[in-house]
Amino acid sequence: MTDAVSGDTFYDLPGVSEEYLRRRSQTGHPNDLMEEPYVRELMGPVTGRSFLDLGCGDARFGRALLDEGAERYVGVDASRRLLEHAPPATDRLRVQHATLRDWRPEPGSADVVTARMVLHYLPDLGDLLERVRSALRPGGAFVLSVEHPTLTSCYDLADQEDFPRSWLVRDYFRPGPRPLHWLGGTVVKHHRSIEDYLTCLEGAGLRLAALREGRPRNGTLDEETLRARQHVPMYLIVKAVLPADRAGAAQSWTVP
C-alpha cells in the first residue's frame, strides 16, 4: 500500500482527473442511472432552496440545480484540477478548494447538504458530520451516497467486471482502509458497514429519514444491462434530517 494515496490528493495525480471526467461524461454512466436519481428523490424539491455540495468535483451538479431554480449552490472539493472545470463564481454559485478535514461551514446556511461518493475517502466521519449539522438549517436534509459496503469490504476479491456478477464479502465488520487501483492510480478508501454509517449520523444528531441501495430501475436500462446490474448493489444512498428541536450540539458519542 506504499504507493496508495488519500482521496485528498488522488484526483490531482497526473491523468486521474482527466480520466475521471472522461468516464463521467459517458452516456449511461452508473452514477447517472443508479445513484443520482435516488439522491434527487431523497433531497426533494430544488426550487428556492440553498445547497451545499461536499466533494463537488467540477460542480456539474450545481449547474444543474441552479438551472432548475435553486437559490444558491456552494461546492467544496479538495482537487484543484477538478475545480478548474467548475463554472465561474456568481452571486448564486461558489466553489471552494478545501479538504473535508479543513472545511468549515457557514452556520445555518443550507437547506440541503449533499456528499456524493466522497465519504468513503475519509478515515473519520464524526467531526465532519458535526459540521454538516452546523451548516444545516433546522429541518434541513443531509443526503449522502457512498460505494456500497459490500464493495468496499474487499476490493481484492472483486471479479473486476464492469457489471459485477458476484462479490465475496470479507471482513465486513472490520472498518478501515482498503486500497483500490483505479483511474490509473491507487487510492485509499475506507470501509464501513451500513450500521456504521447510520450510527455516525445518529451520533451527530441527524435522524435517519430514508435509505436506498441504488436498485436498477426498469425503463432506464436495456433488459440485458438491467439483469447484470441487479446482481450486486453498487451504492448506498441515505437521507438524514436535522429536527428543528435538535439544531444544537450533537450527542457526545464515539463514531467511526
Rank of each mutant, 00 (worst) to 15 (best):
K189T: 14
R170K: 10
S50F: 04
D159M: 03
R101A: 14
S17M: 05
R80T: 11
A59K: 02
G7Q: 00
D156C: 09
R217V: 12
M234S: 11
A228N: 11
H231T: 08
A86W: 04
S134E: 15
I237Y: 05
W167G: 00
F10K: 00
L208S: 09
P14E: 05
E68F: 01
K189L: 15
S153I: 03
P30T: 08
S17F: 05
E213R: 00
V238K: 02
R229I: 01
A98C: 08
L183R: 10
G205T: 02
T114R: 00
T2Y: 01
D159K: 01
E35K: 01
L100T: 07
R80V: 09
R133D: 04
Y121E: 04
L42F: 13
D67A: 15
R192F: 06
A89R: 14
L82D: 05
R40L: 14
W253K: 11
C154M: 07
L180A: 09
E223D: 13
L136Q: 01
T9Y: 00
H190F: 14
A135N: 02
G62V: 02
T225N: 11
V16D: 06
N218H: 13
T225Q: 14
G55F: 03
L13K: 07
S25Y: 00
R207S: 11
A250W: 06
G57F: 04
L93N: 04
D162V: 10
A209C: 03
L242Q: 06
G55R: 03
P149D: 10
R178F: 06
H120G: 06
R101L: 08
M34G: 07
R229N: 09
Q230T: 10
E35I: 05
S50G: 04
A98R: 09
P175N: 12
V76G: 06
D67M: 10
A4C: 07
L93Q: 11
R174S: 11
G214Y: 03
E71Q: 14
E36S: 11
F163E: 13
D222C: 10
L122T: 01
A86N: 08
R207H: 09
N31E: 13
A141M: 03
W103E: 09
V5C: 10
M234E: 14
T220K: 08
R174V: 14
R40S: 13
F61A: 10
V118S: 03
N31F: 11
Q26C: 04
T114W: 01
E224M: 07
A89E: 15
D53T: 05
M1I: 10
L128A: 05
D124W: 03
P87I: 07
R246E: 15
E223A: 15
D162K: 09
V255A: 11
L136S: 00
G48P: 06
A98H: 07
V112R: 01
W253N: 07
F61H: 08
Y235A: 07
H181T: 15
T152Q: 02
M43F: 14
G108P: 05
H85F: 12
R131N: 08
R192G: 05
R94Y: 00
F173W: 08
Y38C: 05
M117K: 07
E202T: 11
A240V: 06
D67T: 12
F142L: 13
R63N: 04
H85R: 15
E195D: 10
D32N: 12
S145Y: 05
F10R: 02
R174T: 15
R63V: 12
W167A: 10
E84S: 13
S79A: 08
P177C: 07
S193Q: 07
A210C: 04
